[in-house]
Simulated assay, not measured.
Amino acid sequence: MKTSDFYYDLPKELIAQTPVEPRDSSRLLLLDRKSGEISHKHFRDVIDSLNEGDLLVCNDSRVLPARIYGTKAETGARVEFLLLKQISGNKWETLCKPGKKAREGAEFSFGDGILKGKVLEVKDDGNRVVDFDCDENFFATLDKIGQMPLPPYITEELKDKERYQTVYSHELGSAAAPTAGLHFTTELMDKIKAKGVNIAYVTLHVGLGTFRPVKVDDVTKHKMHSEHYEIPKETAELINKTKKNGGRVIAVGTTSCRTLESVATQYGEIKACDGFTDIFIYPGYKFKVLDGLITNFHLPESTLIMLVSAFAGYDKIMNAYKVAVQEKYRFFSFGDAMFIY
């Protein structure tokens, strides 16, 4: 398949710039992957499509407020740092803009001096290795001065940082939110549990590679980025029990999906484990775990629209996206949701 096969025309005004309130008032497109039938609801109605004995698998990763602005000690120049990966302790791989002001040895001050940083190395790809120093816990300091690393297509300022976190986020480490989970409220999750639907958690720390465009014509030639995941023992047991009892395993988001399918592909079963995944799911892939998927609407020609096409069928997904545009659904991170079952 060609990357261009996954293109669709999206009017700019349908790219959601702000989250809706309350979270579960977003719209929900229901797609039956067998018949291709489409119906329209609100996200709070997702409970009506869940059955007793089903299992929702959510990604509990929490987004780092990873965008910080530093002042260069020598010149006072302002430089933006985006934390990409923790190397060890307070040493991080970062993306800097403008890079020419962050050469090796350069020192910076952040947040009126509560955080300091020194560029140790400029890597071949242009990323910087920075050693940070602060008096208190690094992550507590980051929470005070950092901003959410919103995707480039969101241009409006986010007033409340928690709106780019799921209500069940727990494990700090993502550079972007697992956005399918943003629609859940604590109250909705309580109602879902009361119906006899189980909820389990995996952790996959979302990297900025999730926004990286596919630049090759032949889909199979694309090299997928790598992300760290963990499946706890309790979750593995719940998944296996659900399957055994004939319930459905429904992933909340493509990150949860990729975690489950990675482990099943590697080990032939779901078990408690952790590691790194660079699994690339596109049409032709045979799913080993998933029975349903709750997901947002993804960018044209992205690996994520390829994944949902693999799950629901290419023609059905491209038609669903066409309908969503016609019905003026809101797209991408702060947009509406789809439940493929």
Rank of each mutant, 00 (worst) to 15 (best):
R23T: 11
K286D: 15
S49D: 15
G89K: 09
I340F: 09
P98N: 05
V289Y: 04
E107P: 02
G111S: 03
D135I: 15
S88A: 11
K85Y: 14
D125L: 08
D143N: 15
C257W: 05
A320P: 06
K116L: 14
L290F: 06
Y341A: 14
D124S: 11
C134V: 08
Y8E: 08
S35Y: 08
R330K: 08
G207M: 02
Y164N: 03
M148R: 07
N296C: 03
P213V: 04
L10Y: 00
K161V: 15
E162T: 07
Y69C: 14
E301F: 06
V206G: 08
K123T: 15
I87D: 11
G275T: 06
W92F: 07
P22I: 12
T185M: 11
Y201N: 07
Y7M: 13
I250H: 07
T295G: 08
A272K: 06
P151C: 01
G335I: 02
I239Y: 05
N137H: 10
D32F: 01
G113C: 01
V252D: 04
G209S: 09
Y164K: 09
K328M: 10
I87W: 14
G275L: 01
N319Q: 13
N90C: 12
F339M: 05
V249N: 06
R163E: 15
Y321D: 01
N240A: 03
C273G: 11
S302C: 06
A66Y: 03
I68G: 10
E37A: 13
D291E: 04
P22R: 09
D9W: 10
I154F: 02
K288H: 12
V63T: 00
Y314E: 09
L29R: 02
E301M: 04
K34T: 14
A102R: 05
K221T: 10
G146N: 05
Y314H: 10
Q86T: 13
H222R: 09
A264S: 07
K322C: 12
M1Q: 12
T94E: 08
A77T: 15
A106E: 03
L260R: 01
P283A: 07
A337S: 10
V249W: 09
V202F: 02
Y285A: 01
F276W: 14
F43E: 04
P232M: 04
P151V: 00
Q86V: 15
S256Y: 00
D133K: 13
N240L: 08
N296L: 09
T259V: 00
V308M: 09
D124C: 06
H228L: 15
H228R: 13
R23P: 09
Y285V: 04
K286Q: 11
G36E: 01
N198C: 14
G76N: 09
E327R: 10
D217N: 13
R330Y: 01
G70I: 03
N127H: 12
K316F: 05
N296G: 07
V323Q: 11
K193E: 15
E121M: 13
K159H: 11
K316G: 01
V219K: 08
A16W: 04
Y69T: 13
V57D: 02
L30W: 12
A312H: 00
S309C: 12
V325W: 08
S25F: 13
K193T: 15
F311M: 00
Y229L: 13
G268R: 07
H225R: 10
K85V: 15
L172I: 11
